[in-house]
Design a protein around this nucleic acid. Structure first.
Lengths: 207, 207
DNA sequence: ATTTTATTGTTATCTTTATAACAAGAAATC
DNA sequence: GATTTCTTGTTATAAAGATAACAATAAAAT
């Protein structure tokens, strides 16, 4: 089954919001309720749900529990995937704490750094390991995803290490465009661009 | 002049990469060189540049300095815009340090928090102020952009404070969908969704 | 029992974004 | 000086994404 990129993004958001609603005791939800929550149209919600092959009930809506489980089957693997942080700087640390316990199927199991003063200890309960051990640890700890939080000028070589270690997917927080083989999925996450986008639109609103 | 959203994003990326190339002493650049750098097509580069009304030279390409300056005129204001961080947690701190000195036209000038143990001091040279003073400070410090880094369950009220303070644009790092008046530009930046997107594609590559 | 109402599922249309195609023209080569 | 080459600028086409329209139908109301 092929899903549009934007649908995958929204499925992630649906699930997170549905989990909160489920915890409040609600069992069923209408497309227009989900839509209002995320500020999108009900059609889009219904279309996304159609694409993953789920069926709601007329006049009752969607079974929240079932929908959450189905989204989980699409996004997550049964065993979950292990993730590593590349670079124990401010951003790396913030992300480690941010994700701590948040997504049981996506566990940050290690942080890698070149600085020997940082390695060999735990941070937020997660081992900080020297980058020389990356390849070995990716294999032994079954890590499939890497998050790059190192600065611009170190991002290139960090990516090369990850490629050599045969990682499967990368989330890149540095604004450096990476050169990767096609087999590795790359998601870019550029804070500067996001802020500049806000700046652009804010400027226009002011004028 | 109206620019497509995606073009604005790329302009930000063009500029950052061009600044580095300019610093290396290069004066002119071809569309296919920019394209290769960012892993996009040369047509797209040319089209974006066409849309902002810049003209290159045949067989010589684009004047890097001129292009950088023009992108600056589009994204930035002459005086620059002031930015504040909402929430001095791990993410807020990381972002403050990350942006420190990086974008002279987008200056983080204050961080706001509710915790009285955090307020009244400086962090990374930036004053940490109690949120009760938000409205007054937004006016007196001429802040137009707010970055929300508080957790999910605090994001709603934080946004309300920003709305009351008449902020112009918001960059939201919490995954909480915000309810804002149309006049405020909102950019969402959801790490969990990004990581889950990687997880989804990585899973597919594995199978 | 019939009619009305509300909601899903899906196709059709529109909008946005990206790519392809190519004319125009300057520089380089012959 | 004529021809070839290379690169821009722009229009035409294609692909992705969002919205509109509406049939189907179960539940509620009459």
């Amino acid at each position: 089954m092929h899903l549009p990129d934007k649908t995958v993004e929204r499925l992630s958001q649906y699930r997170r919001n549905l989990l909160i609603i489920l915890a409040k005791g609600k069992e069923f939800i209408f497309s227009h309720e989900i839509a209002q929550l995320l500020h999108i149209t009900p059609v889009q919600v219904r279309r996304d749900i159609m694409l993953i092959g789920y069926n709601g009930t007329l006049r009752k809506g969607y079974d929240i529990k079932e929908l959450i489980d189905l989204i989980g089957k699409i996004i997550d693997t049964d065993e979950g995937q292990n993730v590593c942080i590349m670079g124990l700087g401010n951003l790396g640390k913030a992300i480690m704490k941010y994700f701590s316990g948040k997504r049981p199927k996506l566990k940050i199991v290690a942080a890698f750094d070149t600085n020997q003063e940082k390695t060999g200890q735990l941070y937020a309960g997660i081992p900080v390991i020297h980058i020389d051990e990356l390849k070995e640890k990716v294999r032994s700890m079954n890590i499939s995803i890497g998050i790059i939080t190192v600065p611009f000028d170190k991002a290139g070589e960090t990516a090369e290490y990850l490629v050599a270690a045969e990682i499967k997917g990368i989330l890149n927080f540095s604004s450096k465009p990476l050169n990767l083989p096609e087999t590795i999925y790359l998601e870019e996450y550029d804070m500067v661009t996001s802020l500049e986008k806000v700046a652009y639109h804010t400027k226009r609103n002011k004028q």
